[in-house]
């Protein structure tokens, strides 16, 4: 049978999904053991026990100086910034996208503006944000907002244009005015798309969060990673990275599940 026609069964698919992770893990453990055998002081590839110690120190024992559990404080601080950034970006992006995509008069001004703004590298204007909004929470949230709002707005605009003209005409023959047409036809059809746009923007949102925290912060997952980098503390950095990855993956999964549960009619959500 040709390769293109061979499909894995259920158990095969699970095994094949696990395989690359297992290989990476084995490669890491082997490399770590080899380096530590040569030099027990090696910091580059810490062993599992070293990392477990670090996690225990960061997450399950009080910090001697502040009396707090740093790992959970960092997580809470980062997630708060991320959630605020995503929420503001979603609302603003949705509104701008609908305006630009369904009202040609607004789109004429908004579309070119959104296109140009989305070309500004957000990190390049981070200093501007620090100058304008100060060094505290607001500037970090604003970086996420500025970074992903144009992407979401342009995606929603595109999807709004893709709504078949027949549906908009039909709604008008059913007595809709512009406002109720947007409220009852355009908006509900774009909400599942918004969740997918958010899902796709999650990666960038995390990137901007870590960048902002690395540069100016006193807590947060990104701050901690860049802080302990000074001591080559790979035993802290690697668990933090794994934790961030797990959080991002869970958010992605959550958004996917939410799309499917909240919008059962949406076909794009079934894939």
């Amino acid at each position: 049978m040709r390769l293109i026609n061979q499909k894995p069964g259920r158990s095969w698919r699970i095994s094949l999904a696990m395989l690359p992770f297992a290989l990476l893990l084995i490669a890491y453990l082997a490399g770590s053991a080899a380096r530590l055998a040569e030099n027990p002081q090696d910091k580059l590839l810490p062993s599992v026990t070293q990392m477990a110690d670090a996690v225990d120190r960061m997450a399950f024992s009080e910090d001697p100086r502040s009396g707090r559990y740093l790992f959970w404080d960092d997580t809470a601080a980062s997630l708060k910034r991320l959630a605020m950034g995503l929420a503001i970006a979603a609302v603003v992006g949705l509104c701008l996208g609908i305006l630009a995509g369904s009202l040609p008069l607004f789109g004429a001004s908004l579309s070119p503006l959104l296109t140009v703004i989305s070309m500004i590298p957000p990190l390049a204007i981070l200093p501007v944000l620090f100058i304008v909004f100060g060094l505290d929470e607001l500037s970090k949230v604003m970086l996420i907002v500025l970074g992903i709002t144009p992407v979401i707005a342009r995606d929603i605009e595109q999807r709004a244009r893709e709504i078949p003209a027949e549906l908009l005409i039909k709604a008008q023959t059913l007595g809709a005015n512009t406002w109720t047409l947007i409220l009852r036809v355009v908006l509900p059809q774009l909400l599942p798309r918004l969740l997918i746009a958010l899902q796709l923007a999650l990666g960038s949102a995390w990137l901007f969060l870590i960048a902002a925290e690395a540069i100016a912060s006193t807590d947060g997952l990104g701050y901690r990673i860049f802080l302990v980098r000074r001591y080559l503390a790979m035993d802290v950095i690697l668990p933090y990275v794994a934790w961030i990855t797990l959080l991002a993956w869970l958010m992605d999964l959550g958004l996917k599940r939410l799309t499917r549960a909240a919008f059962p009619w949406y076909e794009g959500g079934r894939t």
């Binding site: 027949e166 039909k170 709604a171 007595g175 809709a176 109720t180 009852r184 509900p188 919008f263 009619w265």
Partner: peptide, 26 residues
């Protein structure tokens, strides 16, 4: 593309009674 994919069969038809009478909330 004559019917609205996000509304149930019943709501697709009831919509025509709702929209003209509710210009604010639809």
């Amino acid at each position: 593309y004559s019917v609205l994919p996000h509304l149930s069969v019943l709501d697709n038809v009831a919509l025509g009674l709702e929209l003209p009478r509710a210009p604010l909330l639809g």
